[in-house]
Write a protein that binds this DNA or RNA. Sequence first.
DNA 1: AGCACGCCGACT
DNA 2: GTCGGCGTGCTC
Length: 809
Amino acid sequence: MKIAQIIVDNKCKETDRVYSYLIPQGLEIKIGHRVIVPFGRANKKIAGYVVGLKSNTELEINKLKAIAGLPSNDIFLSADMLKLIKWMREKYLCYYIEAIHGALPANIRIKNTYIYELNQDSKNIDLLKEGNPQALMDVLEFMEENGGRATKEELRDNFNDNILENAVKKLIKLGVLKRHQKVKSQENIMYERFVYPDAEKAEIPANAKKQRLLMDIVGSKPGISIKALQKDYAIGKATIDNLLSKGFIRIEEKEAYRLVPEKIQAESKKILTKEQCRAFGEIEECFKKGRHVLLHGVTGSGKTEIYLQLIEAELKKGKQGIVLVPEISLTPQMIRRFVSRFGDTVAVLHSGLSNGEKYDEWRRIAEGKAKVAIGARSAIFAPFEKLGIIIIDEEHENTYKSETRPKYDAREVAMKRCDIEGARLLLGSATPSIESYFKATNKLNNMALVSINTRVNNKVMPNVKIVDMREELKAGNKSIFSHSLAEEIKIALGQKDQIILFLNRRGYSTFVSCRSCGFVAKCPNCNISLTYHAKGNYLTCHYCGYSRPNPKECPSCKSSYIKYFGIGTQRVEREFQSTFDDIDVLRMDADTTTRKNSHKLILDKFRNKEASVLIGTQMIGKGHDFSDVTLVGIITSDTYLNLPDFRAGEKTFQMVTQSAGRAGRGDKPGTVIIQTYSPEHYSLLYAKNHDYEGFYKDEIKMRKEMNYPPFSHLGHIVISGIGEDAVVKAAKEAGRSLNKLRGDNSNIEIWGPSPAPLSRINNRHRWQLVLKSVKEEEVLKILRDFNNSAFLNSEEVSVSMDINPLNML
DNA sequence: AGCACGCCGACT
DNA sequence: GTCGGCGTGCTC
């Protein structure tokens, strides 16, 4: 007797456990298989994942149900992957099934619905028609109009739930309706059809020109695809069908992949520069010692080539590699580099793919056809069997942390996966996150640091100039372009060079700033800027709840020039065109990039020099290599600085450094102009000097003083709901509950409850609580206990929890 | 979550 | 009695 331990695909707290099912005779079930099981009183057929096998159980055998079968498309989770999933459940406070779904391509869900059929012969129809409740008649009428068949969803769209349930139940009881459950695993595999000749000699009428043509083609190219016949020879379906029925040709189906790989010229290995070579050697040395590596290489230092050669080395050992990059659709150059080096053994997993395409790529990996996966966050789960290396490029990017459940951090998952599977991890960035740099310099988590401080071919770092916008205002310049920036723009335009202008318009949270002296209101307890609330006209700190009235004049210089900020890219575009006329400008932001591929189009246009100027938000600041850009202007570099976030300095440094890194990558030296209202801020000063280490030293000192990460771990609880009163009440209740759970453990701080910085989203009010402790496990434990005692999750409010969030807005 | 059961008031 | 509205409790 074999018993399977199964996680069922039913997303709820109560069913987040392992169930036991009997394995019927003749069904070969292995760990990691996806199966279909009957579940619940109604024996609804749902998907389940086998996580273990046993030969006995404490449960009563005759009360166990049996596995119903296997879905048509096989999904496997390796034993290592199951370990990772279990770890994710603990670490990110999610359900097993959520972790499983996170690790599998979307759209593999088993579709499950009920189909109702009208029993036409039933005499009961007549019975019913004699003086019956309206509901029954309505449902019957609908069924008849619908051809005697309807899915549950179709009925639901047309009837009120309660009426429906009762009426349908009644009709089933009377035998008028029949219900079948339909279980369908999405058939994601696409088949392509190929034509072969299938007769010694085909006799074709003289006038059938198309048929003759087809026979000729198939004769010279047996195995040509139907697609090619239609496209290249204009042979239609009728011709093929005709010959098929005569038996002159036959058709074979083969699994096909939707993505036709771009034909890219093979590129051979580049010779590493001296510096790259040293770094490569150091990395290999660390890997040999079983260490993970943080590679800190300045912008333009040639990290990608090192990645390529590290992967090559793993492939030579018969192993496989994963490369994570942020929002991959933004870096077509990088994909091209990988494909040109590794050909069709590269699987690309990016957000621009359809679900079917994603599934195809996933399958190519699972089947061993792809050896290198390059993709965004979720590519960390690429189903390789012999994983040798995981590379995370631009590791400081926030996109590696998922904002939806499971709220995992791909960097942490990568490290765990490497540890489970004996692979090596390489994090790479020109501006490493403080957390990673801290780990690497202190050799925590077995992480080592390798640095490259020079650009390839010793290209000089761009010259960076900080412009004090307060001075500009004093001098009467109300334009968004400072004199310096305007001058540099004119020079660049005169030399036919290209220009990039950055604007960080993350304009949700307004902040109060004095335009004449740069004063920004800050919280006395938290070293974080206060947020302006128009309603009630007050300033508040969203971490500790401190609040004060909005000052009428600047407390520092008594000026009445108190303003809150918000310049959009469109305004920059308009102002640019009115200041420097007759110049082609490209704008790239959320408004212009809604269409699929539109990023690529805009960037290609810019690369082809169809415009001299590119204006955009941060999305253009990553990894692009435009060799004719000599000037980068950062219109407002203060945006982050004034967000209520202890990472404000870090994000500013990263943004400025990365943006500046776009300048001077070609033969000409680059210039960068940073416009700011806080020119003395350490983030900007260190960024100006390209001094990451200096920045890190200051930043880590602040983190230590304030006991912020990496010196502590945060737990974030957001309580939201439509009704403000219910949310506030629940938040206060949650506060009491957390205090009780904390007991007298003084290592754990609890902040709040206080309104979330984004106090209302989608019509929902939001309040938050923050837990802080030096020990992550302590935070997790309280969050878990809190979740188990959840009196809170009701129709009125919902609770979301996150461990070590990257933003708490 | 999703489903069925069963209790209870309203109405034939 | 019977209908259907709604709360309750369970899922190998």
